[in-house]
Each structure stands twice: as structure tokens, then as C-alpha cells.
Nucleic acid binder design. Structure first.
Lengths: 132, 132
DNA sequence: CTTGACCTTGTAGTATACTACAGGGTGTAG
DNA sequence: CTACACCCTGTAGTATACTACAAGGTCAAG
């Protein structure tokens, strides 16, 4: 059974029913086909897409950024060179984000270390983590 | 000259004047001392803190999460064991975030690779990047 | 063939994080 | 001592991302 009703699709994707409608309005997912009654019928691809959106949001991407990311794979990617440039800049953004997160992680680890050695830190390593 | 007026502090920190007032209201930064005229006078530590807030926000942390992160270093961290547990759970969160970002990065890289080899991808690797 | 769980639409409300006034005081340069 | 740029407060508006109705239609069970 590939097609799901709103309630089931929402549950499968891990979001609220209204969120699906909201994503539809915002163009983040395709408009689902409708049955005779006008009820929405969601295909599994849309569920996968919504799951991705949910997780990407947890990673701190905005809906616009997520749309961008998703558009990199499905649309008429006419110009390969243009696509590559776009994708590569996204990759750079993500790498820089990873690098900064690692710095915060290291700062927190150093706080835990200091604490385990019963020393009181002189200066906060967290603030320094994201300096230029 | 350690103390800065609102406009200068905002410029130094890379935010708007009103944002400093907002962060003050929300308890994200200390209330600055005031001159005779009632004008705010920001110390450099506050500027550093606001810079951290700005960058952490770019990494996808909410203001509440950032407050939490900052509270891990400056407050009366009475119970070391409790502090360690809290910090370690934050570290785990960040590590998991880094792992997921790496998956998205790899998915994008594979899209670029496919494109460079002039092949059209059968299935979108981005959607799969954040599956369970 | 009624009941109740589901669906539809449009619209309004919430939380987060600012951002922009209005109305008034301050401080310094010429 | 008058501009004018800056500061103050309180309040209202914006963008993002939902979330919750209200009013009504659909459908499957008993």
C-alpha cells in the first residue's frame, strides 16, 4: 500500500498533520494526488522527503536552506557547471560548520577535563571556541 | 578604553543596537553598568559573549541552547558531577550533529562526483543521507 | 442510516528572534 | 547655546515555522 492519508503520512514522517499542509503550501513537498473525495494521498517519496526535512532542521538548517539542498538533486539541473558550483559552495558551508562544531565540542571537553582534575578554569574556553 | 556605548558595542559584536537590548532582557548577557546619563557601558567580555552567541546561532543553536552552553562555564557550578553529566550530554549532541552533517556533506560530494562523470544519478543521495 | 473518526478549507494564534518606531533626554562641536 | 548625533524607554511590527481552530464534507462500522 504505497499511498497514505494525511494522518498516517504525518505519523510516518514524524510531523503534525498541519505541517504537511504547511510544507505543501511552501513548496517543500509536491502536492499529493487526491482521491475522489478530495482526500490527499501521499506517496512514500514524500514521506522520505519530510523525514529529511525534519532531520535537517534538527541540524540547524532553515527551511529555505533545506529547499535549496533538496533542489540540488531533483530539479532540471540543466547547467552542470552551475550545479557543481552551487553544490560545492554548500559543501564548503557544511565543512565550515563541522569545523566550528568541533571547536565547541573541544571547548566543552576541556571544561569536563578541568572539572575532573578538580581544578577551576581560569578562563572560559567556550567563548574562545568560536573566535575568528 | 574598555567600555563601549551601545552603537559601538553593537558594531564590534556584529549585531544591531536593539539586539543588545533584546539579549539583555532575555538574560543572555549581563546588564551593563550605566554612566551618569543612564547610558549603557559595555565591557569587552560582553562583546566577546555576543560574538559567540552570533556564531553559535549560525551553527544552528537556538538562543536557549546557547544560554545553556554559556551557563556551563560561568555560573556557580556547585555540583561537579552534575555539571559533568550536563556537559557530556551536550558533547554527545554536538558529536551526533557533526556525524549527520558529514553524511549530508558526503551526499553532496557524491552528487558532484556523478555530475563530473557526466552520469545522471538514479536516486537522490541527499534524501538517504539522514535516514535512521 | 446514524455515529464517529477522519478529511477538507480558510483563518487565526503561538514561539522565537529580532527590528523598527515614537517620544523624549543627553552630550559635544561650532 | 543651538544643532545634531547619540542615548533612553516602551511598545508594536516582521519573518520563520509551525499549531490550532471553526465550519463543513466523507466514509466505514454497526
Amino acid at each position: 500500500m504505497p499511498l497514505l492519508t494525511t494522518a498516517k503520512a504525518a505519523e510516518e514522517a514524524g510531523v503534525g498533520r498541519e505541517t504537511l499542509r504547511f510544507y505543501e503550501r511552501e513548496g517543500l513537498i509536491e502536492k499529493p494526488i487526491r482521491g475522489n473525495s478530495g482526500y490527499r494521498q501521499y506517496p512514500p517519496e514524500t514521506i522520505a522527503r519530510v523525514r529529511f526535512i525534519r532531520r535537517a532542521k534538527e541540524l540547524g538548517f532553515t527551511l529555505n536552506e533545506i529547499k535549496d539542498l533538496l533542489d540540488l538533486s531533483d530539479p532540471p539541473n540543466a547547467e552542470c557547471a552551475q550545479f557543481r558550483a552551487h553544490a560545492k559552495s554548500k559543501i564548503e558551508d557544511i565543512r565550515s560548520k563541522i569545523g566550528k562544531l568541533r571547536k565547541v565540542e573541544r571547548a566543552l571537553s576541556s571544561l569536563v577535563d578541568t572539572c575532573e582534575r578538580s581544578g577551576t578554569p581560569r578562563k572560559c574556553p567556550i567563548l574562545d571556541a568560536l573566535e575568528d
